[in-house]
């Protein structure tokens, strides 16, 4: 067994894992956060996407031991006490999910994209979400949600802020970055 330290959504965890334990299983079973989903275990579907030190990875293709010391963001880490992250809000507003199984990957991939590119065009959006399969939506609403999140975050639109902060100044600090 290996002792592994992970900072998940800002919280320190120390877990014991076998060498062969995949990061996705460590997150789901040892850390206990089940919002990250398993869809294929081949690195194709993207439902297991998390951010490791700010970069999106498919956590089925990473050994938990390799992530020792890493900071990890999962779907559970996006919303703050004050409400949904603007990307989550945009996905809800645009009906950008149905069953929700692909959501962890779609949301975190979008967060990474918008961190890198505040005004992505359709090609950039497709390039970002091409690693994530969705079988329900046909992707149309997901593209719309990414655009909506980008527009709101870039414009400092109060709607882009977590719900509880919306009455405050629009120039309040930016939403928690993923």
């Amino acid at each position: 067994m290996n002792r592994v330290r992970l900072k998940v959504n800002g919280q320190e965890h120390e877990i014991e894992v076998e060498s062969c334990t995949l990061l996705v299983h460590a997150i789901r079973e040892d850390v206990g956060l089940t919002g990250t989903h398993v869809g294929c275990l081949t690195g194709d579907c993207g439902a297991c996407t998390v951010l490791v030190d700010g970069a999106s990875v498919k956590s089925c293709s990473v050994f938990a031991v390799s992530a020792d010391g890493a900071e990890i963001t999962t779907i559970e880490g996006l919303a703050g006490d004050e409400g949904l992250h603007p990307v989550q809000q945009a996905f809800w507003d645009e009906f950008a999910f149905q069953c929700g199984y692909c959501l962890p990957g779609m949301l975190l991939t979008t967060c990474e994209l918008l961190d890198r590119d505040q005004d992505p065009d359709d090609a950039a959006i497709d390039q970002a979400i091409n690693g994530n399969l969705c079988r329900c939506t046909g992707y149309a609403s997901i593209r719309s949600a990414v655009r909506r999140a980008a527009t709101r975050m870039a414009a400092g639109d109060p709607d882009a802020l977590p719900e509880s902060q919306r009455s405050e100044s629009p120039s309040a600090e930016p939403p928690p970055s993923a």
Binding site: L22, L41, T42, G43, K58, S61, V62, F63, V65, S66
Partner: peptide, 26 residues
């Protein structure tokens, strides 16, 4: 030898590659 893991780890998960030792280059 483990590089980025995007091909090796799925292969190990599905029993196509087995190893006693994994050397992670990261």
């Amino acid at each position: 030898v483990l590089g980025g893991g995007t091909m090796l780890i799925p292969d190990m998960t599905h029993g196509r590659t087995r190893a006693d030792v994994v050397v992670d280059l990261s």
